[in-house]
Design a binder for these strands. Structure first.
Lengths: 245, 245
DNA sequence: CGCCGACTTGAGCAATCTCAATCATGGTGG
DNA sequence: CCACCATGATTGAGATTGCTCAAGTCGGCG
């Protein structure tokens, strides 16, 4: 179990000098949650910026009818940037602890004050935001263009420790949550794992053994072809009169 | 056909004083494209920030196998913020003109210089980025939790001019592109339109007539119940040992 | 030992895709 | 002015993917 990392190791805060870091963390607090606890709720007024120190935090969107859709999962050292709003508005997602979790809560007000004061900080926040955008775009691509099997393969590839071709690792959280992350049901996830067995992926509950990352990667790339080229090449679209309304 | 809007009307630039706006636009240029022209290509070095003056710009992700996935569509006055990278890196998406389009290309280098110089500008950029994040989150929610019919209804609702209950409007671009935006095939889109006829939505090619926005909105909300409550309420997930790897 | 939760597996069903045919529509050239 | 072609849109039929419901297994823990 890693100790709460020095705040310097949090990318978002790495650029702050001592004085600013001081000011930012003066009103901050470390909190612990148990699995399922709500950290903040969609619709509540934005009061704090959350940084995960230990464990995982999941972000959900809650529809009027009560449906919960998993948006993102954050781990060790990550800042929950999706929730950032600049005008003291309201959270547009809810955050819950996954397993026992420890987080740092920064005051949103202080956080926002610092942006104009420190260009480096503003830059770091922007960096975080653009990288999150890239992330979400990848997610959308995945959801729109890939099958459940593909998405699982991609997910597993992202978990393989770099460097080794044969490797093993633990799934970071339970399969129900992984399924939600991939946008499928747990039964479908189970079957997707079963299909990957043919490509050298074995699982024992949480533990995953990958015979060859290369093989898995090429399976990932060929699956869409192996199936029958489902990914639609977009046609040209015309909008002669592109005037809206 | 609206004239190219004064740059002051572009939200991203509204906060700049004359001197800074001058500096930013010194190296900028206005360019015209015809339908399908590539504005920038995924993988190319990031050289400019694009603002749409007239027409539409679509963003695509291109997979190694050649599949193109539509990520986003931008219209009049919007800045193509998804493409922003801070370290003079590479575009991670491609941009193409949809119909005849006129855009403003700002120098990315100048753009980045301005961020530390003007806190207000940094704030505006960040604002744009966080609002894009909200947007993409909505997209993901839609893709994960809603049926094709729902997504179309939601899309149409977003196009209805505010205030009126009975209304009509033109679709901003052709149905193939709309289908791609919703993550479905054009045939499926066609059938989705057919289903909405029962809820007072009629179409004549590009023109859409909505009998009652309220009715459409309630159809949108009830469809998931009317069907059979497909949206999975997420279960609690445990991750006792949440240590990654 | 027995329960509970997480995971797996099977069977049938629903949503969506694919392929193919048809039908408008608008522009073009004779 | 009209035949003709290209493009977009619609519709039908069958294949596929993923979902739902229902058992059944496995492993840990009181």
């Amino acid at each position: 179990m890693p100790e709460p990392p020095p705040l310097r190791e949090v990318p978002l805060l790495a650029c702050l000098d001592d004085a600013l870091l001081q000011r930012l963390t003066l009103e901050s607090k470390v909190e612990s949650y148990k699995s399922g606890d709500v950290i903040f709720r969609q619709g509540d007024r934005t009061t704090c910026i959350v940084i995960v120190l230990h464990g995982f935090v999941k972000l959900l969107r809650i529809a009027p009818c009560g449906d919960e859709t998993l948006i993102d999962v954050f781990g060790h050292g990550q800042s929950v940037i999706d929730a950032l709003t600049l005008n003291g508005e309201f959270y547009h997602v809810s955050a819950e602890a996954v397993g026992a979790t420890r987080i740092l809560k920064l005051s949103a007000a202080r956080f926002l004050q610092l942006i104009p004061e420190s260009p480096a900080f503003a830059f770091a926040v922007l960096q975080e935001a653009t990288s999150k955008i890239r992330n979400l775009i990848g997610e959308i691509e995945s959801l729109k263009a890939q099958s459940a099997d593909n998405r699982l393969a991609r997910f597993l590839l992202s978990l393989c420790p770099p460097g080794e071709d044969r490797c093993q690792f633990r799934l970071p959280y339970d399969k129900r949550l992984i399924a939600a992350r991939l946008g499928i049901q747990q039964e479908t996830l189970s079957r997707a794992f079963a299909k990957l067995r043919d490509f050298g992926v074995r699982t024992e509950t949480r533990q995953v053994f990958v015979e060859s990352v290369m093989r898995l990667a090429s399976a990932y790339n060929e699956m869409e072809i192996g199936g029958h080229l489902q990914g639609a090449r977009l046609q040209r679209s015309t909008a002669q009169d592109a005037a809206l309304q």
